[in-house]
Simulated assay, not measured.
Amino acid sequence: MKKLTVLKSLIVGLTVFLGLSLTSCNDDRYEPTPVKLEDVNGNYKARLVTSQGSKFNEKIIEFKAKDTIITFKDFPVREIVKTIITDPVKADTALAHIGKVEYTLNYQSKINSGQNVVELSFEPKTLAFQIPVDGVVKNAVVKLVAKQKGFFIGYDWSLRFGLEAEKITVDGLELTPYQTIKYDVPISVKN
């Protein structure tokens, strides 16, 4: 009889313990860390999707965001050069001689606390660089635009944005016909 009472007491105690431990789980909620404007600052590695008409190219790029400026140490100009120089061999030779093209992209930021994101409104400048082809240096000026806002997402701490090369001018003459080149960064993560 004594063994049965002890066993019943242990079962009751165990049941009460499990019941109390499970009730604490009912109130667990995910509380995201609120984003701050300075959270955007940092070095990023990104997946860049470049498209022009039905042609798509994808590659990994790196850039830095600091104090309302995104800096690309090596802005992807391959599609721009191949649009200007239609001969693939000459375009590849020109790309090898151009090297790295640096570009800075200005932005203004604003916190959207309801979505836990930092919204980025871009102010693109023109991209200007020189293209050596057939012993002549051509001056290319690319008008870049940002038709949508960019976002720094508080959930996964990633940066997402897009740009378009709306117009290309070579030695003062606008390229026509011209098909817009789109640069989309669907996700980038801090290094």
Rank of each mutant, 00 (worst) to 15 (best):
L163S: 08
G154P: 01
G135N: 08
S121E: 14
D134N: 14
F152E: 08
P132L: 05
K138H: 15
T126L: 04
P124E: 01
G114D: 11
P132W: 02
F122S: 11
V133K: 09
S113R: 06
K110I: 00
N116D: 09
Q108F: 06
K147G: 06
W157R: 15
W157F: 15
F151R: 11
A128I: 09
K110T: 12
I153Y: 13
V145M: 10
F152A: 06
L120S: 05
F122W: 14
S121R: 10
I153E: 11
Q108Y: 08
L144R: 00
Y155T: 12
N116K: 04
S121I: 12
D156R: 09
S121G: 12
L127W: 09
K143P: 00
F161N: 10
V145L: 08
K138I: 07
I131F: 14
Y107R: 02
N112T: 01
P132F: 02
G154Y: 09
E164I: 01
L144S: 03
N139H: 07
N139G: 04
S158K: 10
Y107W: 04
D134A: 10
I111K: 09
V133W: 08
K143W: 02
V117R: 13
A128Q: 13
A128H: 03
L159R: 06
K125Q: 13
V118K: 01
S113Y: 05
Q130E: 13
A128M: 04
F161Y: 15
K138G: 03
F129M: 11
I131E: 14
